[in-house]
Computed example of a mutant assay.
Amino acid sequence: MTQPPDPLRSPALEHKTLLWLVVGFSAAFLLVLWPLAGAVLWALFLALVFWPMHLRTRRLVRRPSVAALLTVMSIVLIVIVPLFLVSASVVDQTSVLVEKVRGGEIQPTEYLQRMMHALPQWATGILQRLGLDELPALLQRASEVLQRSGQAITTGLLGIGQFTLDFVVSFFIMLYVLFFLLRDGTALSNTIADAVPLQPAQTRKLLGQFVTVVRATVKGNVVVAVIQGTLGGLAFWVLDVPGPALWGALMALLSLLPAVGAALVWGPVALYKLFTGDLVGGIGLTVWGVLVIGLVDNVLRPVLVGRDTRMPDYLVLVATVGGISLFGLNGFVIGPVIAAMFLVCWKLLTEVRQQLGHSSQRDSAG
C-alpha cells in the first residue's frame, strides 16, 4: 500500500520556500550593507572603470593579488591623492574667504548694491514689482549673522577637511573591497551570471549594459566636471576673483547638472562685472563661459555618456538630476544606471514577447 505524498515535501513548496529565503536574506544583507553603501558602490564603480588597466597589469604581472594591489595603488595616485589636494586647497580658501567677510574686507552687500544701482530703470521696476528690491537688506542681515558666527563656521569648515573616524573607516573599506573586486572580478561576474535566473544571452546583455553605463557615466561626468571646474577656476584667477579654487570646485560639483550647472557660478559674476562697468571682464567671462565651458558640457557629455549608454540626452539629464536628489552625490552614477537598466529590461521583455508571438503564430499555422 502506497503512502500518500507528504504536502510539506512538495517540490513546488520547496522551490517557493527557497525563493523566499533568498529574497529575505538578500534584503537583510542589503540592510547590513546600507551604512557602507557609498564605500561599496564606489569600490564597484572604480573597479569597473579601471578594469581595462587591471587587465593590462595582469598581463605584466602573473600573480593576481600583486596585480590587484598595483592597480589599487595606481588608482590612489591618479584619483584619490589629487582629490585630497584639491579638497585641502578648497577648505583653505573657504576659511580665508570667511575670515575676509568677517573682517569686512569682502562685503557681499556692497557688491549687490553696486550691481542694483547700475541696473537700468526698467530693470529696477521689474525687481520692485517682483519684490526683489529688498535683496541688499536681506543680504546685509545675512552678512551680520555671518560675521557674528564666523568663528564657528570657520571651525566647521576646517573640520570638514580633517579625517573623521567614519570617513577613514569608509575609505579603507572602499580600498579593501576594491582590491578583492579587482582580484576576483572574473570569478564574481561568472558567479552572478550563473545565479541570475535568465537565459545566458539575456544575462550577458544585462551585465554588459550595466558595465557600459557605469564606465560611461563615471568617465563622462568626472571628465566634464574636472575640465569645467579647471576652466572656471582659471578664469576666476585671471579676473582676480577671491577663492578661485573654491569657485572652480563648486563649478565642478554643479557641472553634474548637465547644460546649466557651471553657469550658476560664473553667470552671476559675469553679470556683476557687466553692471558695475567692468565690460572687458564681464564680456570676457561670458564668452569664456558660453563658448569654452559650455562647449565642454555640450560636446563631451553626450559623447562620453549619451553615446555609450545609447540614451537620449534628455533622459541622461533627468536621470542624473533625479538620482542626485534621491541618492545624493552617488546619484550621478546610480540615476543613469537605473535609467539604462530600465530601458534594457523593457527591451528584453519586448524581444521575449515578440519571440513568443512568432512561436504561437507558427504553431497555429502548423
Rank of each mutant, 00 (worst) to 15 (best):
P268S: 03
W122N: 12
R310Y: 10
L271V: 07
G232Q: 02
K100F: 08
A216T: 10
H15F: 14
Q354A: 15
R56S: 07
G161A: 02
T350L: 13
L348P: 04
V352P: 10
V296N: 01
G103Y: 08
L165W: 13
R183F: 03
G277V: 07
R301Q: 00
R129Y: 06
L165P: 04
V177R: 12
L274A: 04
E351N: 05
E14F: 14
I126G: 04
F275W: 11
A225C: 11
V280G: 11
V98F: 05
E14T: 11
G261Y: 01
V76C: 11
A67Q: 03
I283A: 08
L175P: 06
H358F: 12
I75Y: 01
M311Q: 06
L304N: 03
F327W: 05
G248M: 04
V168T: 07
A259M: 15
P336T: 10
L30F: 13
T320G: 07
A193N: 01
L127M: 11
T217W: 02
T155H: 15
L69I: 06
L130V: 12
W34L: 15
R148K: 14
T164K: 04
F327M: 03
D308I: 12
W122Q: 15
V269N: 00
T71P: 04
T186P: 09
A339G: 06
G150K: 07
S95K: 15
M53L: 15
L349D: 12
L139A: 07
Q147N: 04
F171W: 06
S95D: 14
F327N: 00
P4R: 05
V352G: 14
E105K: 05
D363M: 10
Y176A: 14
V168W: 04
T109D: 06
C345M: 15
L85H: 02
R59T: 12
P7K: 09
R362P: 04
M341Q: 12
Q199M: 13
P52L: 03
A245T: 13
L254W: 01
F29Q: 13
L165I: 12
Y111A: 13
Q3D: 09
L188P: 08
E99N: 12
L295W: 10
R301W: 01
Q93G: 08
S95W: 12
G335F: 00
Q199A: 09
Q202Y: 11
W346H: 14
I80L: 15
K273D: 10
A235P: 02
L18M: 10
G233E: 09
K100L: 11
R129W: 05
L77F: 11
A187D: 14
R362K: 11
K219W: 14
R215P: 14
G220N: 03
F50I: 02
G328L: 01
M1N: 08
M251Q: 01
L207Q: 10
V260Y: 00
R353G: 13
L127Q: 02
P200S: 05
Q121N: 08
P268M: 01
V223R: 08
I173F: 13
P136T: 03
W247D: 01
G208Q: 09
V40Q: 05
F171T: 07
W20Y: 14
P268I: 01
A365F: 13
L356G: 11
D194I: 11
S95M: 15
L279S: 12
D240N: 15
A263V: 00
G125N: 14
V218E: 02
Q128I: 07
A187P: 10
P197Q: 03
W42S: 07
R307F: 12
